[in-house]
Nucleic acid binder design. Structure first.
Lengths: 158, 158
DNA sequence: ACTTTAATGTTGACAGGTCAACTAAATTTA
DNA sequence: TAAATTTAGTTGACCTGTCAACATTAAAGT
């Protein structure tokens, strides 16, 4: 297949301008960096970090709530929490009202690791936000919102 | 760790406002949807699709070029291409100038599958772009560029 | 020429993440 | 209340993606 043939065969959207492609690349980069920082600073994984961030801001949390707020896979959440309890980073409290459910909270050890990683993660977050001005930041989050809605409305497309 | 970092270490940025978090969630959604569309329309994976998109826009391509343009893992690229050749979607041509290298191009079968998936993927792409106006689109891509640069410049942070 | 260094790809091991089946408890409905 | 449905969480199978070690070839330095 020659380049000329391709040019004739219709309008192609350049790779660099595809939202999903750019999204994937940026996500891969940020993810890899988070993983490195978290491993080096506190020896924790990104999934563990995310659980702790939610607990830190919402207080004691159940897997259900976590899934609801983050849309992460409940299987992953279940396994991550299980591992964290085993490693003494979290402790579980069974719920009175629902025997299926339980809440988790950070132990001293978990909190200590969280505090070790936080300055680095925060600095990173701040620097990421600082590379955009206020308008750009707002526009970015707005676009994220719109894209999420668009994705959902596209599920009919199959 | 700098003094500034320590001073900030107590305050919390809400989860919903974290760039990386939003990025991860949006990426997960788009990825899952792509995977579904590609599987249903052509029985191919997202990795395979991406290889084909690059071949379609750049013509015959080597793994090296693919890695260079997309920043995807070379191991993944190697395995994906290997599988695609095995399934008759691509064919390889060894390079004269470099005995280590080879180029790949789409076979008829590969192209046919690509064409089957393309309308859906293009429609999706268009609809995603349509949910943003021109300014928002430009701003989004610009922000992506800036964030990628920022991420790279952050690697010193450890 | 020859040793060293860098580039290209392949492979194995593993963590991250998705999907679906499953258990058990709660809720709804008939 | 009993049956059916929904919800919370767990688990197994599987795929994707990352990292590092490796073989091979090319390029650079001496």
């Amino acid at each position: 297949m020659t380049k000329k043939m391709l040019e004739q065969s219709g309008k192609t959207i350049p790779l660099q301008q595809m939202v999903t492609f750019r999204l994937a690349r940026l996500h891969a980069k940020t993810n890899a960096q988070s993983t490195r920082i978290l491993n080096k600073s506190a020896g924790i994984t990104l999934s563990q970090w995310r659980i702790m961030v939610l607990i830190e801001s919402h207080g004691k949390t159940s897997p259900k709530e976590f899934v609801k707020h983050t849309k992460f896979d409940k299987g992953l959440v279940s396994r991550t929490i299980k591992g964290m309890i085993k490693n003494g980073l979290l402790y579980a409290e069974s719920s009175d009202s629902d025997q299926r459910s339980h809440s988790v909270d950070m132990t001293e050890k978990g909190l200590a690791l969280f505090e070790r990683a936080r300055p680095y993660m925060r600095e990173r977050q701040v620097r990421l936000l600082d590379c955009l001005n206020k308008d750009e930041r707002n526009a970015l989050f707005e676009s994220f919102d719109k894209l999420e809605v668009a994705i959902d409305s596209l599920d009919e497309l199959l």
